[in-house]
Deep mutational scan, measured.
Amino acid sequence: GTEIELESKNGQREHYTATSEDEARKIIEKAVRRGIKRIELRGASEQLIRDMQEIAKQIGLQYRTDGSL
C-alpha cells in the first residue's frame, strides 16, 4: 500500500495507509480540499507521484516522497 502522512496548517498530523492508488488519490484530494500544509508519500506509484506533483504545483503545497520510484 501507499503510506500517506498529512500535516494540516495547525500542525496536526494524520497517517493513512491506502490499499489502492484510487484510495490514495481520494485521501489526497480530501486533504487538499480541507487545506493541508504538507504531504508525504511512501510507496506511491510513479503515476501517483506525478499526479501529486501536479496538485502541489497548482496549490503551492509542500510534498515529499521517499524517492522509491
Rank of each mutant, 00 (worst) to 15 (best):
K30L: 13
E3I: 10
R13V: 13
A24H: 00
A44Q: 02
E7A: 04
L61Q: 04
R42T: 10
Y16G: 00
Y63C: 15
R25F: 06
G67F: 04
G1H: 12
E46F: 04
G67N: 08
N10R: 06
E14M: 11
T19A: 13
K37V: 12
G1F: 13
Q47E: 11
E14D: 05
Q47L: 07
T19L: 14
H15K: 10
A24T: 03
R25N: 01
I39V: 07
E29T: 06
I49M: 10
G67A: 04
A18S: 10
A31G: 05
E46V: 10
E54H: 06
E54W: 07
K30G: 12
A56D: 01
Y16A: 02
E3N: 09
E21V: 07
D51A: 11
G35Y: 03
A18Y: 07
I36L: 09
L69G: 09
L41V: 14
K57S: 10
G60M: 05
R25K: 07
G11V: 01
I49A: 06
I27Y: 10
Y63P: 03
Q62R: 09
K57D: 11
Q12H: 11
N10T: 12
I49V: 08
L48V: 03
E40T: 14
G35K: 03
R25P: 00
I55K: 03
A18K: 03
L69E: 10
L61M: 06
A24P: 00
I4G: 00
T65K: 06
I27G: 00
N10Y: 10
D66C: 13
V32W: 04
S8F: 15
E40L: 15
V32M: 15
T17W: 15
R64Q: 15
R38Q: 05
T2G: 05
R64V: 15
K57V: 07
R13E: 03
R50E: 06
I59H: 15
R33I: 11
E23T: 03
T19N: 13
L6Y: 08
D22I: 11
E23D: 08
A31E: 02
Y16W: 09
A24G: 02
K9C: 15
R13F: 09
E29I: 07
L48Y: 01
G43W: 07
H15M: 10
L48D: 01
G35I: 01
S8Q: 09
Q53R: 09
E21Y: 13
R13K: 12
D22C: 11
K37I: 14
T2Y: 12
I4N: 01
I59F: 15
G43M: 04
M52I: 15
L41S: 00
I39G: 00
E5T: 15
D51G: 04
T19D: 12
E29P: 00
V32N: 00
E40W: 15
R64K: 13
G11H: 03
E14V: 08
L48P: 00
G67P: 11
E14W: 12
I55H: 04
L61C: 14
Q62I: 15
K26N: 10
E7G: 02
A44D: 00
L61E: 05
L61D: 05
D22V: 07
I59V: 14
E3F: 14
D66I: 04
G60P: 04
Q62W: 07
L48E: 01
D66E: 09
I59N: 15
